[in-house]
């Protein structure tokens, strides 16, 4: 009797492990930090790409508009792809679009903007990538929607897609 019980427990355990592993096979293996956390962006100041003036992020926030910060770089191919959505977003009067130029060469960044158009109200520089890390980003491109108190409402990791664009429009019109 004791023996049967032991085998019963053993087999149940093995089936349990099987189910766990079976579930795990279908999960994505690469790690992406949580995208919908209600966190605040730490206040920072950075140089303007064009004028070289030191600008406080606080001063760029509107209480009437929703602020979107887009981290981009001229050497990043996905940034090129998502640029059309940024251009579209910039036409919306309720959006205050700010660019954060990640670890880039100033002249190359300027060429990029001249070539594809400037959707941004202001472009700030992040030469060491430290500001991006402070925001919780880890690569380019990343896009943050923030409210007037610097709370992150939504965060997109990687290239913006059309459905992302629609989602942003939905959030704006809410």
């Amino acid at each position: 009797m004791k023996k049967n019980f032991f085998y019963f427990i053993l087999i149940s355990l093995i089936i349990f492990v099987f189910v766990l592993l079976y579930t795990a096979v279908f999960k994505s293996k690469s790690y992406i930090p949580a995208t919908t956390i209600n966190k605040k962006i730490k206040e920072f100041s950075a140089k303007d790409l064009f004028t070289d003036n030191e600008i406080e992020i606080k001063d760029l926030i509107h209480d009437k508009k929703i602020t979107i910060i887009n981290i981009w770089s001229s050497w990043c191919a996905p940034c090129r792809n998502e640029h059309i959505y940024l251009m579209k977003l910039s036409q919306d009067s309720k959006i205050n679009l700010i660019g954060l130029n990640y670890k880039d060469d100033r002249s190359k960044a300027e060429v990029f903007i001249q070539e594809l158009g400037n959707p941004f109200f202001k472009i700030l520089e992040d030469p060491d990538g430290i500001i991006s890390i402070d925001m919780g980003a880890y690569g380019v491109p990343e896009t943050y929607i923030i409210d007037d108190k610097l709370n992150i409402i939504r965060k997109f990791i990687g290239e913006l897609t059309f459905s992302n664009y629609e989602e942003i429009i939905d959030i704006i019109n809410k």
Partner: peptide, 13 residues
């Protein structure tokens, strides 16, 4: 990677 390099700078800071 760029991220790793930035993190190293950040740690130093």
């Amino acid at each position: 990677s760029e991220f790793a390099n930035s993190i190293k700078i950040l740690i130093n800071k």
